[in-house]
Amino acid sequence: MQTFEKNITVTADDLDQLNHVNNVRYVQWVQDIAAEHWNSKVTKHISDSYFWVLLKHTIEYKGEALLNDVLTVKTFVEKSEGVTSIRHVEIINKNTNKLLAASQTTWCLISKETKRPSRVTPEIINLFN
């Protein structure tokens, strides 16, 4: 499994009324890293042919992030079979190496032409193994 990651610095816009990162922001980061990983790997032909829709999302919150914390957001695809892929995301405080949130999402591949579910092709599977 190939891991894709990036660092994020928490800004005031990420905070809620308790002055820690709002849970909705974590969900946004999970979605953003998935899209960035996909876009970093696929060819123009693949991106012109398919898109993903979210079927199921679970997230476990394990700690809080505060203003100016540097976070590492990591993702990888666990498996792809049929029309779905299971993706994991971890959000870690870079300074303490503490896991702050862990997510598992099930995505469905959709054909842009038919707007219907499409089997995940071997070409796509190989890009993320």
Rank of each mutant, 00 (worst) to 15 (best):
K6G: 00
T9Q: 07
A34Y: 02
N129G: 02
I46H: 10
M1Q: 02
Q104K: 14
V42D: 07
E5G: 00
N97L: 05
A34N: 03
S40I: 10
V73H: 01
Q31F: 08
V120T: 10
E113W: 06
E113G: 05
F76Y: 14
I92E: 00
I91L: 04
S47E: 09
E5K: 11
W38H: 07
H45G: 05
V89D: 01
K56C: 05
L71I: 06
K98F: 03
E78G: 05
I91K: 01
N126R: 14
N126F: 08
L54W: 05
L127E: 04
R87Y: 03
T106R: 11
V21D: 04
H57Q: 14
L100N: 00
K98S: 04
E64G: 08
W38M: 10
H57L: 14
C108R: 11
E60I: 13
K98T: 08
N126E: 12
H37I: 02
V30S: 01
Q2R: 04
I8G: 01
G82S: 09
S80V: 09
V24M: 13
E90M: 05
A101T: 03
I124E: 03
S47R: 14
V77I: 15
L66T: 13
E60Q: 15
R116T: 13
E90H: 06
T3H: 04
N68Q: 14
T114G: 11
A65F: 05
R116F: 07
T84M: 08
E90D: 13
A101S: 10
K112C: 12
S49R: 13
S111W: 10
E60F: 11
